[in-house]
Design a protein around this nucleic acid. Structure first.
Length: 509
RNA sequence: GCAGGUGUAGCUCAGUUGGUUAGAGCGCCGGUCUGUGGAACCGGAGGUCGGUGGUUCGAGCCCACCCACCUGUACCA
């Protein structure tokens, strides 16, 4: 019976524990990201992990199931609260709440965990970290261009080489114009518009033919599962594909040209569509600004970028890693989008009534970190463990001696601890090894009587040990171990640490 | 959510046409070795064979349902 009551030690699915090296790498990467954001003039802001549900809720994907995808609970006073699922909605709340006191434009950056109650997968968690930067109160596309260029700088700052990434930019107005031109305007076509946008979003993944199928009747995947398409006819699909591939839609200093073979009528409809032209014009401006700053090889216009379906109102952007890497099983790993964002002119207006133009983007910290790990750019150097003082003798007076040694090392800035477990010497050595200790200090009764300490360099010792086959010899040799006077403890440990820091004795060889 | 696949020790996996006490390697703990992390040898712990129900004299193996994970797909603020 008691057995049944024992809780099972297990992590809820979609969550992850993070330890030493990974945490250090995360902190190091965040520091680099923040440095770039700060350099661009963004100031730090932190908002809490949860908000009133209605502050987040309007922009949930499916209005019929407002709790879908979000972790929610009720407060004492029965008001509903939800864990944030991104950092943009809380920013909008913050700006609306403190609007009068904030400088406009308000430029802020923030990092934090967000939560999504949906199916986890490889690299997809229910809690993950984002790091955002936003400009609120900036109507011009120069703010969008700046964000894109900052995204490029940020990726390079964390170690993604130029050429291994691209910031792709599109404009929601261009897509809206295309949809209008092919006759999908109006409330009654909202569902089909979404389907078309989703199909466009799949261009990277499935190519022209895949998108053509999704725009038309539908597409069958490898497992035989069928995805229903948007049901466009061939003429409509041709316009979407012309825009998507750039074959037929061109824009330069002379203006926008649309040519669709055999369909002058729809070509003209698109070429005179107001939203389409405005969107193309904005993209041209972004292109010009980006080129003037010398970013044209890194920030590129790409008509297949769609992003979230709900709140973006203008330019949208996505940072994609372009290098290919194979995993342990030899399968190619696609990192895809590691950051994204766009203009959301309506988000603050939810609280304020008046329109507040804003644009920003968000880095998926965990995803970027795992990509960096594949690139070999992660700061994952093993932490140097503490110097371990072995407990050779458990009498209180001797324990006091050991504690004193620990204090002395700590007072000199050296990580150190006395072994606090119950094991014998062999267990203590194993402990020190597992902790990555650079050295252990040994003082049994013999050394005590002589006023000495034995210090063992564990890194050097492991190397010497590798060449000794016989255990008796190994033990007799006491590799990399030496005696010093009690008052030489700090100096001797410093020597060991310095040797370890030297390249010939590092972990690399 | 949908489709397909996989579930045996901490990890990677064997396990015959259904047959008695479910194995290996690695890892872990201990000993050889009265004061030394490695190596070697020896020993030990660790499994309700994902769960429940069924078929059978007998189920890790067959059947049904459920759960979890993997792959694809859908959704992705």
């Amino acid at each position: 019976m008691a057995k049944d009551l024992k809780p099972k030690a297990r992590l809820p699915r979609g969550l992850a524990d993070r330890t030493g090296a990974e945490l250090a790498a995360t902190h190091s990467m965040l520091a680099k990201i923040r440095a770039v954001y700060a350099l661009y003039g963004f100031e730090a802001l932190e908002t809490p992990a949860f908000e009133y549900t209605d502050a987040l809720g309007k922009f949930l994907p499916d209005q019929d199931r407002p709790n879908e995808g979000v972790f929610s609970f009720q407060d004492d006073d029965e008001q509903w609260l939800s864990l944030r699922y991104d950092l943009t909605a809380p920013l909008a709340r913050y700006v609306a709440e403190h609007f009068d006191a904030l400088p406009k434009p308000y430029r802020s950056h923030r990092a934090g965990y967000v939560f999504r109650n949906e199916k986890p997968g490889p690299g997809r968690f229910r809690q993950f970290m984002q790091c955002d930067a936003d400009t609120v109160g900036a109507p011009s596309v120069s703010a969008d261009a700046e964000i894109c260029m900052m995204a490029a700088d940020t990726l390079e700052a964390v170690g993604v080489p130029r050429g291994d990434y691209v910031i792709r930019v599109n404009n929601r107005k261009v897509l809206d114009g295309v949809l209008e031109a092919i006759g999908l305007a109006g409330e009654e076509n909202a569902g089909r518009r979404l389907t078309v946008l989703r199909a466009i979003d799949k261009y990277d993944k499935f190519g022209v033919e895949g998108v053509r199928l999704l725009l038309g009747a539908g597409r069958k995947d490898e497992s035989g599962d069928f995805t229903k398409g948007a049901g466009l006819n061939e003429r409509q699909s041709a316009v979407v594909l012309a825009m998507l591939t750039g074959d037929g839609v061109t824009a330069d200093a002379d203006g926008v040209k649309v040519e669709i073979p055999g369909d002058v009528e729809l070509a003209a409809a698109l070429a005179t569509n107001a939203a389409f032209l405005e969107g193309m014009d904005e993209l041209n401006t972004i292109r010009m600004l980006v080129a003037a700053a010398g970013y044209e090889d890194r920030v590129k216009i790409d008509p297949s970028v769609v992003r979230g379906l709900e709140y973006y109102t203008g330019p949208v952007y996505e940072a994609e890693l372009t290098f290919e890497i194979k995993d342990e099983d030899g399968r190619p790993v696609r990192f895809g989008s590691v950051a994204g964002g766009g203009r959301y002119d309506g988000l603050v207006a939810r609280f304020k009534g008046e329109k507040v133009p804003a644009t920003g983007f968000s880095i998926g910290v965990s995803r970027l970190l795992s990509a960096l790990a594949f690139l070999g750019k992660m700061d994952d150097e093993a932490e140097v463990g503490p110097v371990v003082i072995l407990v050779m003798d458990k009498e209180p007076a001797r324990l006091a001696d050991y504690m004193k040694m620990v204090s002395e090392l700590r007072a000199n800035g050296i990580r150190a601890e006395m072994y606090q477990g119950g094991g014998g010497m062999k267990a203590q050595m194993k402990y020190a090894d597992k902790r990555g200790a650079p050295a252990v200090v040994i003082q049994g009764s013999n050394e005590k009587a002589a006023g000495e300490l034995q210090i063992k360099d564990l890194v050097e010792g492991a190397k010497i040990a590798a060449s000794i086959a016989d255990n008796a010899e190994y033990r007799a040799a006491r590799p990399a171990q030496f005696a010093v006077k009690e008052n030489e403890l700090v100096a001797a440990i410093r020597d060991v640490l310095e040797r370890r820091a030297a390249p010939t004795l590092g972990l690399d060889d």
